[in-house]
């Protein structure tokens, strides 16, 4: 549980520079519609996530991700799988 929380916090940190103003990012927010993350930004975000967590993120995994929390769950799974 603690590990998941850490992953979520790191993801929020990574997303923060890509959202407008000082919007507070919450776990339930929709990445595309609430945070206005488009495909260009997502490429950069994915690269950051891969570097920070030292994982490879397949595009297929992300196609079902909608919210920040869902992203955290998927990242956590990949981190566990690559241990």
């Amino acid at each position: 549980m603690k590990a998941e929380k850490v992953v979520l916090e790191r993801i929020v940190e990574i997303l923060q520079p890509f959202v407008s103003g000082k919007m507070e990012i919450t776990p339930g927010m929709d990445i595309e519609s609430d945070l206005a993350i488009d495909s260009l930004k997502s490429m950069e975000i994915l690269a950051s996530l891969e570097d920070v967590f030292d994982i490879s993120i397949p595009l297929n995994v992300l196609s079902e991700v909608r919210t920040v929390e869902e992203l955290a769950v998927q990242i956590q799974k990949l981190v566990e799988a690559e241990k």
Binding site: M43, P58, N60
Partner: peptide
């Protein structure tokens, strides 16, 4: 094509 076959896809810059 990748989506149709279900391969794991990763992108590089």
């Amino acid at each position: 094509g990748c989506r149709l076959g279900g391969v794991q896809v990763y992108r590089f810059r």
